[in-house]
């Protein structure tokens, strides 16, 4: 197991290096200047600023400096917020984003799994149709539309929850819901199909033949087997959540990484864009590693040899 994880970490480092390189190149290809009012500055003033941030160096040197910084965990200094390091800015903003992402992932998958289970068990009944409708709506309507509807009805019309900004737990409820709907709908659809399939397996008949009660059959023999394929889609779902936060944080003015990212793209704040990209990349890669480990925990057939 240790050897496997070691191997995986080496691959992760290679992947990160490639991502860093590609995003660096793309960044250099971007048109526009990081200076907000470039036309109002004299050539000399611009030159001084470029010099300060190392933008006059030849591109290979910039690249080497950038990688060198990365290796030491230094993501550079923001262009816009004077003298603030990118890590510092990200550190300030990670809280709300992480809270939103984790809440949405947990609520989305748990509710989705339950909904799918209920549909599968009462398959072709009213509950099934209802949850299918929810699932179809959830996957086909984009999250920003939900966000708008939630803000309009729950916050503005009924005044139950705050419309936007970030000032405590109740402020996180609406954005979490808006963010959780897609993973919930996807999990529900997936779980329903898998569970119906599993309930038709021979080993379920075996369990019935032992005289087990319906609930024992579903919980002990059904769910675990139905979850195996579900884990596969958890990766893409988590990715979806990360990109989802970009939009949702903007709509609800949540001071998170996603909102910062969008602002930085608008102001050509290269170090922050690069830093955020690297941060997202690390989150993805770690997520994928966790999912692969989860697989082994749930499915004994792919548990790694050497330990068991």
């Amino acid at each position: 197991m240790a050897r496997y994880i070691g191997q995986r970490i080496i691959y992760m480092i290679i992947t990160l290096f490639l991502i860093a390189t590609i995003s660096f190149v793309l960044m250099k290809l971007l048109p526009g200047s990081p200076l907000a009012n470039a036309n109002k500055l004299t050539e000399e003033q611009q030159e001084v600023i470029y010099e300060k941030y190392g933008l006059n160096d030849p591109i290979p040197v910039q690249y080497a400096n950038y990688l060198g910084g990365l290796v030491q965990g230094d993501l550079g200094i923001s262009f816009k917020y004077d003298n603030r390091s990118v890590s510092d800015i990200l550190g300030d903003r990670i809280g709300p984003s992480a809270q939103l992402g984790i809440q949405a992932l947990i609520i989305g998958t748990v509710l989705g799994i339950l909904l799918g289970l209920v549909s599968a068990i009462y398959h072709n009944g009213i509950t099934d149709y209802l949850s299918t409708i929810i699932a179809v709506l959830g996957t086909s309507i984009p999250s920003f539309v939900f966000a708008g509807l939630l803000q309009f009805f729950v916050a503005v019309k009924w005044g139950i929850l705050p419309v936007a900004t970030w000032n405590g737990f109740e402020y996180s409820i609406l954005p979490t819901i808006a963010l959780a709907i897609f993973p919930m709908a996807t999990c529900a659809r997936f779980m329903r199909t898998e569970m119906i399939e599993v309930l038709n397996e021979d080993y379920i008949t075996t369990a019935k033949a032992k005289g087990l009660a319906g609930s024992a059959i579903i919980f002990k023999h059904g769910i675990r087997n139905a979850l195996i394929p579900l884990i596969t889609i958890l990766g893409p779902l988590a990715v979806g959540l990360l990109t989802g936060t970009l939009v949702i944080e903007q709509i609800f003015s949540v001071p998170g990484i996603g909102e910062q990212f969008v602002t930085s793209v608008n102001t050509n704040d290269f170090p922050i864009i690069m830093g955020t990209t690297m941060f997202f990349a690390v989150v993805f890669i770690v997520m994928i590693l966790i999912i692969d480990i989860l697989y082994g925990l749930i499915d004994p057939r792919i548990r790694l040899s050497g330990k068991d």
């Binding site: 397996e201 021979d202 080993y203 008949t205 075996t206 369990a207 019935k208 033949a209 032992k210 005289g211 087990l212 009660a213 319906g214 002990k220 023999h221 675990r224 087997n225 195996i228 749930i298 499915d299 004994p300 057939r301």
Partner: peptide, 28 residues
């Protein structure tokens, strides 16, 4: 009723199935 049948199944009446490759739960 199914509930009462459950106490007979596996206790008084037991069954051996055709395909041992699929009749055991792979994750237990």
């Amino acid at each position: 009723k199914d509930k009462n049948m459950q106490s007979i199944r596996g206790k008084e009446l037991a069954m051996i199935f055709q395909d041992p490759m699929t009749s055991l739960n792979p994750t237990m």
